[in-house]
Simulated scan of single mutants.
Amino acid sequence: MRVFVAGGTGVLGRRLVPRLVARGHEVIATTTSAAKLDLVVQLGAKGVVMDGLDRMSVRDAVAAAQPDAILHQMTAINPVHAGQPSFKHMDRWFAGTNRLRTEGTDNLLAAAQATGVTNIVAQSYAAWNGLRQGGWVKTERDMLDPMKGTTAAPGMAAIGHVENAVVKAGGAVLRYGWFYGPDATEALAEPVRKRQFPIVGDGAGHTSFVHLDDAASATILTVEQHAKGVFNIVDDEPAPANQWLPYTAACAGAKKPMRVPVWLARPLAGQVAVILMTEGRGFSNAKAKRELGWTLRYPSWRQGFKEELA
């Protein structure tokens, strides 16, 4: 197939593009900067500069590519674009990404319709943001938490827009867990080493992770099978913070994370961080394994963290 990867130089795009090429697909990958076109070539793809927020730019790029499939991997959470990560100020941290998940999604879907593309796969998120009711592990039938009243609410609304619009267009939405792997693990390990990532309260809140290579393999299966609907792309072991954080510290050669009571964490780190640590819900990957035939190289974050941080 001719596969158009919007956001081909992001952390997942850099793992995804060469794998698509290796499987015989012709890949056209976008970047927002001409300076990154050489990187796209190194990945084996044809590069094109595109502004996902400019409808004409998207229309022209897709029309020129004449793809059989479109992969929406556009985000703007790199510190260059979004500043330093902050759960306390998640609305500011994800402002650019939220626009790409709303305006950018609409632009891509309009371009897809204009060129007759129906094989569409878009990025969503499922790490700790399951609805805070019932059990700790959620399926695709469960709602995501809208996080009303928190700084994460605009981001959850943007995710809802992606999911509704892409599924309505007959495409597939992949709810990726918390990424780790090349160019992603250090973003988690660095604050752990600096003891800036404490366990809040009882640390019972669950999180689901996924290695970038496993996320890439699931994405390829989805586009090759022209799958439709929503899939959780996470590993086999959703885990509470009181397990994965100390394990991460041990793998990174750091001291054990500190423990902070909820009353202190709320003003310091914000309500979203408290929710993640104490009430977060993880996700099940059973549907993706069953319907896509997906197998994981890293079934557990335990194996992956140990290897990545060795």
Score class of each variant (00 low, 15 high):
residue 76 A to H: 10
residue 264 L to T: 09
residue 217 S to P: 09
residue 99 R to D: 07
residue 135 G to N: 02
residue 274 V to W: 01
residue 303 Q to M: 12
residue 120 I to Q: 08
residue 234 V to N: 06
residue 8 G to W: 10
residue 273 A to Y: 07
residue 36 K to D: 05
residue 94 F to D: 09
residue 35 A to W: 03
residue 80 V to R: 15
residue 229 G to M: 04
residue 283 F to N: 01
residue 90 M to R: 11
residue 54 D to M: 08
residue 289 K to T: 04
residue 291 E to H: 11
residue 71 L to S: 05
residue 153 A to N: 12
residue 245 L to T: 11
residue 179 F to V: 10
residue 101 R to F: 14
residue 90 M to W: 15
residue 303 Q to W: 03
residue 282 G to L: 05
residue 146 P to I: 10
residue 120 I to S: 11
residue 69 A to N: 05
residue 306 K to P: 04
residue 186 E to Q: 15
residue 111 A to L: 07
residue 123 Q to T: 14
residue 95 A to R: 08
residue 214 D to L: 13
residue 231 F to G: 01
residue 207 T to A: 11
residue 239 A to K: 00
residue 250 A to P: 02
residue 286 A to R: 13
residue 56 M to D: 15
residue 260 V to M: 15
residue 144 L to C: 09
residue 218 A to Y: 03
residue 222 T to V: 06
residue 186 E to T: 03
residue 195 R to T: 12
residue 188 L to T: 13
residue 202 D to K: 13
residue 241 A to K: 12
residue 4 F to G: 07
residue 265 A to M: 10
residue 220 I to M: 14
residue 73 Q to T: 11
residue 177 G to K: 00
residue 5 V to L: 02
residue 111 A to D: 11
residue 28 I to F: 10
residue 266 R to A: 12
residue 125 Y to W: 13
residue 101 R to Y: 14
residue 308 E to V: 10
residue 253 G to Y: 04
residue 108 L to V: 10
residue 45 A to P: 00
residue 263 W to T: 14
residue 14 R to A: 07
residue 14 R to Y: 07
residue 102 T to E: 11
residue 129 N to W: 04
residue 231 F to D: 00
residue 257 P to H: 06
residue 198 P to N: 00
residue 16 L to W: 15
residue 286 A to I: 05
residue 161 H to G: 05
residue 180 Y to N: 04
residue 110 A to D: 13
residue 218 A to K: 04
residue 101 R to Q: 12
residue 172 A to E: 10
residue 253 G to E: 13
residue 176 Y to M: 01
residue 240 P to H: 08
residue 150 T to F: 03
residue 243 Q to G: 03
residue 256 K to L: 14
residue 142 D to T: 05
residue 42 Q to D: 15
residue 275 I to S: 12
residue 103 E to D: 15
residue 203 G to D: 04
residue 300 S to T: 14
residue 247 Y to C: 00
residue 242 N to W: 05
residue 211 H to W: 09
residue 39 L to R: 12
residue 38 D to N: 14
residue 252 A to G: 10
residue 205 G to V: 05
residue 18 P to H: 04
residue 210 V to T: 09
residue 46 K to D: 11
residue 236 D to R: 04
residue 130 G to M: 05
residue 265 A to Y: 12
residue 140 E to V: 06
residue 236 D to C: 00
residue 300 S to E: 09
residue 264 L to W: 15
residue 254 A to M: 02
residue 179 F to Y: 15
residue 292 L to D: 02
residue 244 W to S: 03
residue 106 D to L: 00
residue 120 I to V: 15
residue 224 E to G: 07
residue 161 H to S: 02
residue 309 L to N: 08
residue 138 K to I: 01
residue 35 A to T: 14
residue 255 K to D: 15
residue 270 G to C: 02
residue 224 E to K: 08
residue 17 V to H: 02
residue 209 F to Q: 01
residue 275 I to H: 12
residue 284 S to C: 05
residue 2 R to I: 13
residue 99 R to W: 07
residue 116 G to I: 11
residue 33 S to P: 08
residue 42 Q to E: 15
residue 216 A to D: 03
residue 98 N to E: 13
residue 218 A to I: 10
residue 141 R to W: 06
residue 192 V to S: 06
residue 123 Q to Y: 11
residue 107 N to R: 00
residue 133 Q to C: 06
residue 39 L to W: 09
residue 210 V to R: 00
residue 265 A to T: 06
residue 220 I to V: 05
residue 214 D to C: 02
residue 166 V to S: 06
